[in-house]
């Protein structure tokens, strides 16, 4: 029945089990891309994953690497502690927008500013998914949520925060990119960005950061297909895709010496 080689293979570091995510939820794609990069860069044996609080709280069930659960928003601080204790480890966080850009804003900013040699995977679905769809710092103006039922109002709640631009502006980040996984082309580009975000800290250049625009069909009250279309129609015009910083190409970067 099956002939020839597989045209698509799941990375070995990804547990082959059903996910707990809702139908069409792109956390599934985001975590798969992380797993693919861990495999391709042969990092699974020295990776330490810092989980966060949000729908991805069970990330440790899917990524078969050493993991620790951080309190809500604190993953970048926990990552700092892990990396300082184990400089040889490939340390990464996986966080949602409420986690990273609201309660954990200080930890995120300072981790990036210090240039911790860690990777931050930021899944921006413009809503607090796990708690039932409340307004997030990234909720679009006009977007209805359970705590802005009339739609987010810029006067009252401010504009959605553009994290990648902020992180790129900080001295300690080496790589900062925003990607989406709404089309095949974007998935392929997203994979390259995730890979670079892992490589930058491993090459001792600074922090690696990727923002992945993702759907939350359940709390957007849309079908998965409608939600996916919203990414290109509404999110990308405000949250432009692209690489906002990349010092990985530069030849020499001054940095602390790595012990032999």
């Amino acid at each position: 029945m099956k002939n020839g080689k597989e045209a698509f293979t799941l990375p070995g570091v990804l547990a082959d089990i059903p996910t707990h995510y809702c139908p069409g939820c792109q956390h599934g794609v985001a975590q798969r891309l992380v797993a693919e990069c861990l495999d391709e860069l042969a990092l699974s044996e020295k990776a330490i994953c810092i989980g966060s609080i949000g729908c991805s709280v069970f990330i440790y069930n899917y990524l078969l690497v050493d993991s620790v659960e951080a309190p809500h928003g604190r993953a970048p601080a926990v990552a700092t502690g892990v990396k300082r204790a184990r400089p040889e480890a490939a340390v990464f966080t996986y966080q949602g927008d409420g986690d990273l850009a609201s309660i954990g804003m200080a930890e995120t900013m300072h981790c990036a500013n210090r240039g911790e040699r860690v990777t931050i995977i930021f899944v921006n679905n413009t809503v607090y998914g796990m708690t039932g769809g409340q307004m997030a710092p990234t909720t679009m103006v006009g977007q209805r949520t359970t705590t802005c039922p009339g739609g987010r109002c810029a006067d009252n709640e401010g504009q959605p925060i553009k994290m990648t631009e902020i992180i790129a502006s900080l001295g300690g980040s080496a790589y900062a990119a925003r990607v989406a996984v709404d089309s095949v082309k974007h998935v392929r580009a997203a994979k390259k960005a995730v890979r670079k975000a892992f490589e930058a800290p491993l090459n001792n250049l600074g922090l690696g950061f990727v923002e992945i625009l993702a759907t939350c069909p359940t709390n957007w009250k849309m079908t998965p297909v409608q939600a996916n279309e919203r990414i290109a129609a509404e999110l990308i015009p405000y949250f432009p895709l692209g690489t906002f910083k990349d010092v990985t190409e530069l030849e020499t970067i001054e940095g602390p010496e790595v012990a032999e």
């Binding site: 020839g4 597989e6 045209a7 799941l10 082959d16 996910t19 956390h27 599934g28 794609v29």
Partner: peptide, 18 residues
């Protein structure tokens, strides 16, 4: 393999034509 790449649930296997 476009379908497999976009699938959030790793539900699709694709093989190259021999």
């Amino acid at each position: 393999a476009a379908c497999a790449l976009i699938c959030p649930d790793y539900a699709i296997s694709v093989w190259r034509k021999p």
